[in-house]
């Protein structure tokens, strides 16, 4: 276990961008909140304060979520390839560290450590921006950002996103790791082309579309419709209520669908495929010491 923690620590030494990128994003957003100018024409009804506050908090978090996805993807493709590129893989293999623990440390960095850092930074940034907005506006808008229930929902949403995305996209993460462990060059091409080629071949030869259909489940809308209840409908209802339709919007708790998510076969088929691909990445890393 201590070896595993040292390996995680080592990832933060090598990839200082894990701290720097969310930090930069936070700095940009705080600057925008301090000096930016936005015209908000919202119904100034206190009844909608919760809705508006919740929406704003979500909007503050969204850039972090998107940056996190890009960052983790880039990291997964680079991590095992980089150490082969500069031959430092030989140094790592000379240490008493197994290949399984090493590959797993990289997976955990991508699906847990990087998301948690972005989550913590997003939280801190959102707090700071809420504070700045409160000071700058002197209106109910500022006050509406300070509701404990909204904050709680936001935390729950982030944690739910990290866990469900981690599981749902495990086959993708593991595939990227495998490409990183195996491809000599052009990791990005290798990560994209084989799945597409497989889908295309299946269509051409077998005239069926199972691969394509499966790939489609891992598109964003596939994830959102698996892990959330009727997200689009909820958002419209939400927009309606903000627009003055009079309904109090549904809260986050009603959007999350953990039961359905965990009961879907696609969730676990994907996780099993991810496990197999991680195993393959470990096997490849075990053999591929020589360039």
């Amino acid at each position: 276990m201590t070896a595993f923690l040292w390996l995680l620590r080592r990832e933060t030494w090598e990839h200082r961008s894990i701290w720097i990128a969310p930090g930069l994003l936070a700095a940009l957003m705080v600057l925008a909140a301090l000096f930016g100018h936005a015209e908000l024409s919202l119904p100034a009804a206190a009844a909608h304060a919760g809705a508006v506050g919740g929406a704003m908090l979500l909007v503050f978090g969204l850039p972090f979520l998107l940056a996190m996805i890009v960052h983790s993807t880039w990291y997964l493709l680079d991590c095992l390839h980089a150490e082969r590129r500069d031959r430092s893989v030989l140094y790592w293999k000379a240490l008493p560290l197994g290949d399984a623990i090493t590959v797993l440390s990289k997976l955990v960095t991508a699906v847990l450590l990087i998301p948690m850092v972005y989550f913590a930074t997003a939280d801190a940034t959102t707090l700071l921006i809420a504070f700045i907005v409160s000071l700058r506006t002197h209106t109910w808008l500022g006050v509406s950002l300070w509701r404990a229930d909204l904050w709680l929902q936001l935390q729950a949403l982030w944690l739910y996103l990290i866990v469900t995305m981690g599981i749902w996209y495990l086959p993708v993460s593991a595939w990227l790791l495998l490409v990183s462990a195996w491809a000599r060059r052009a990791v990005t091409l290798w990560s994209i082309l084989p799945p597409l080629a497989l889908a295309w071949l299946e269509r051409g030869i077998l005239h069926s579309g199972h691969v394509a259909a499966w790939l489609a489940t891992r598109r964003p809308q596939g994830y959102l419709s698996s892990a959330f209840h009727d997200l689009a409908g909820s958002l419209f209802a939400f927009a309606d209520s903000v627009g003055g339709a009079g309904k109090e919007p549904r809260d986050v708790w009603m959007l999350l669908a953990p039961g359905r998510f965990l009961a879907m076969p696609s969730t676990w088929i994907g996780a099993a495929a991810g496990g197999a691909l991680v195993y393959a990445a470990i096997r490849v890393r075990r053999r591929e010491a020589e360039s």
Partner: peptide, 17 residues
């Protein structure tokens, strides 16, 4: 991994990251 606990191995020049 177990073996490397008891072996000091310098694999090559310049593989320290």
């Amino acid at each position: 991994a177990a073996l490397m606990r008891d072996v000091a191995f310098v694999p090559d020049v310049a593989v320290l990251p």
